[in-house]
Amino acid sequence: MQTVVWQRRQKKQARFGSPGQQFDVVAATGDVSVRGTPGLLARVWPGNEYCRLECNVKRATVTPHRQRPQKPAAVLRILHLSDLHFIGTPGTAYYEFVVRTAMQQQADLILFSGDLIDRPELLDAAVRTLQPLTSLAPCCFVLGNHDWRYDFEEVRRRLQASGWRSVAGSVEIFLLKDRHIAIGGSERPWMGAEPVLVANSLCDLTILLSHSPDQLPAAQRLGYDLLLAGHTHGGQVVLPVVGPVFSPSRYGVALASGLFQGAP
């Protein structure tokens, strides 16, 4: 069973210890190259969040359903990144700011759920930008559908060579806070094998890292305590007041963003 704090994306409910932290990255860095030339119009368009970074904290209390020795409650800080889409706009300075901000969060575990690149010639820059995170905590990843469009195994090899661990179709187990944490991965429906069954695992926490939230039924069927996913971008079309109106998911906008318990 999972007991979670429901949290929508609206600013009044975003939490980052206290209210959600938001950054105008151009103002914070003083680097106008952050946005790239095509971003000039997007940046001034009313309501557009281009080159703005919002850091949210979502708190979930997870009570695993499997039988295991009881331990006192522990807090595990997981940094979850997704859908960076290196495409040249915004520029590399934007992503460097994202990583510097992420490095301040004192994470125990860092997870990336795919869609790293949209231009293969930017793979070097993408890997180089993310590499510093590996010095802070264990870093695991799966790839997404945009990575699949290119030589995705080269993307995988390059990330692994920089210190990240691929969990696609496999499980990595870490000892963190005196707890055994199992991280499984799914790159379905685009590629890869079925996630690993963990229903009989004796780990204290099992997490499925998936690019798409559509893998929620698989996560439940295979016995995972928690699913972390990206792909939906909080809704790829979001209207003021109305909220998300389009999301690339079999569930529509139901899983566009937030914390959820049980079936969608």
Rank of each mutant, 00 (worst) to 15 (best):
Q2T: 14
V5H: 08
R9Y: 07
R15S: 12
F16P: 01
P19S: 09
G20V: 08
F23N: 02
F23A: 02
V25E: 05
V26G: 03
V26T: 07
D31R: 12
V34L: 01
R35E: 07
P38C: 05
P38T: 01
G39D: 05
P46I: 02
N48E: 07
R52Q: 11
L53N: 04
N56L: 03
N56I: 01
R59Y: 01
T61G: 05
H65I: 04
P69H: 04
A74M: 04
V75Y: 00
L76N: 04
R77H: 11
R77I: 05
I78Q: 06
I78T: 13
I87W: 05
P90M: 09
P90W: 03
G91V: 06
A93F: 04
E96K: 12
Q105P: 04
Q106K: 15
F112D: 00
G114S: 09
G114A: 11
G114C: 09
D115G: 06
L116W: 06
I117M: 08
R119M: 12
R119E: 15
D124S: 11
A126F: 10
R128Q: 15
P132G: 08
L133F: 04
L136C: 11
P138S: 11
C139I: 07
V142P: 06
L143N: 03
G144I: 00
N145Q: 13
E153A: 09
E153Y: 08
R157D: 09
Q160F: 03
Q160K: 04
S162A: 15
W164M: 06
S170P: 00
V171K: 09
L175R: 12
L175T: 14
L175F: 01
L176F: 13
H180R: 15
E187Y: 09
E187Q: 15
R188E: 11
G192V: 04
V196Y: 12
L197V: 10
A199S: 15
D204G: 09
P213T: 08
P213W: 02
L216G: 07
L216A: 13
P217A: 13
A218Y: 10
Y224V: 02
D225Q: 10
D225P: 03
D225M: 06
L226W: 15
G230T: 02
V238Y: 01
P240Q: 10
P240F: 08
V241H: 12
G243Q: 11
S247G: 06
P248A: 10
Y251L: 00
V253F: 02
L255P: 01
L255F: 05
A256D: 08
S257H: 13
L259R: 05
P264R: 07
